[in-house]
Amino acid sequence: MATTRTLKQPFSLKRYGIVVAFLGLCALVSLICQIRVMQGVWPVNVFLTVNNLMLILHQISVNGILAVGMTFVVISAGIDLSVGSVLAFAGMMAASFATRSTGVTPWSGVYFVAIPVLAALATGALCGAANGFIVSRFRIQPFIATLGMLLAARGMTMAVTGGNPISALSPEFRWFGTGRLFDVIPIPVVILAIVFVLAWVLLNKTVFGRYVYAVGGNEKSARTSGINTTSVLMWVYIVAGFLSGVAGIILTAKTGSAQTAAGTAYELDAIAAVVIGGASLSGGVGRLSGTFFGALIIGVMNNGLDILGVESFYQLIIKGALIVLAVIFDSRRQA
């Protein structure tokens, strides 16, 4: 307990730095919006409406959930490049059990809604287990192991239907993407909140969570001190895969179609959220609250730049600059 506490950073500038950065970004976007209002271009500040803020949460739900899994992986000193592909594969498997179109796969049809959900979660967890097995048993670098899964899962996504999308999904399944709790809060936001709370408990209040930090901080000494590092790493990748399955359900239900190209390059946004949130790619450092704000910052940026009518290329430049700045800030502070 005492050793792991030193690995975490109990009270630091970074903890607030990310919140300051987030508030600063929000202030900047709403300031520009306010200027437009004063110029008479817009009747109201469209950025600062409840609907728009709910929308931002809705839009970060998929990336936020992937980023939670990525946080576990990054703290364990690993990386998971396969989350986007696994998302697509899990979404395709789910859709095959929730579609009114027959014959896209030999088994396709509308099953009780728990079946497609379980199919996606199992697919995600199995892909994660494969990653974890290769990383922990064969001591293959996570970058390589999950690069393999990035390709393999994308291939399997296409193989399931011979490259076709699956649409005409049942309303019960689509509820996970389009439904609302009390007619207000979108279901993806509810799931995002549940995932964050459960993951926070797992990472901060359980022995497993402390082991993840320990393995990421120094695997050798963790092993010497009696931690089963193989098993810890295995479970870290299962968590990431499982959450890719959750994200796959949401994205598929939101768009109403499982597409073979779904989730392409989503791993990069997930890694970006984690890194902006202050986790270190060398392992042992990171917190879920940081990841949450990291995902929010990306979400506010995408939403704000759309609202301000900024061309998409500048969006990429700004996102790129932000990631690098976050890491520079982080390394200078640690030095």
Binding site: V46, T49, K254, T255, S257, Q259, D306, I307
Partner: peptide, 17 residues
């Protein structure tokens, strides 16, 4: 992309209610 267009249109609907 359908997923990207979904986010984009949501933002536009928010901006131009």
């Amino acid at each position: 992309s359908r997923a990207e267009a979904l986010d984009l249109m949501q933002n536009w609907l928010s901006k131009h209610p």
